[in-house]
Amino acid sequence: MQGETEKSDHIVPYGTYVNVWIALMLLLAATIAVAKVEFSKYSVFANLLIASLKAGLVLFFFMHLKYEKWVLKAMLFMVIATLTAVIALFFADVMFR
């Protein structure tokens, strides 16, 4: 993080956004291709991985997370970790019933 100035009025160049969009479209094509190929077990994993990559791109560039302070990133991480832990606890019940 460079400096402590307010970076909320940081202007992201149009080109960055367009590049991110191209990447998103390529990932969309990739995820459809993965589904068509059918690796059975692994395709679920691969599809969710690609989805997370896409979500990451949207978060970091479209939603400016890249340019935000660490506090916000840490809080978002905490929220996602909370949801993950809740899911894990659900499965601690459902998987061992």
Binding site: D9, T31, N47, A55, L59
Partner: peptide, 29 residues
Amino acid sequence: FSKLENTGLYWHFVDIVWIYLFPLFYLIT
């Protein structure tokens, strides 16, 4: 700009939800 910026954040979030819904309902066949 914060009204528009916050609207943008919301719209992107709705997009992210769809990014996960898409494989879960359409691709995992």
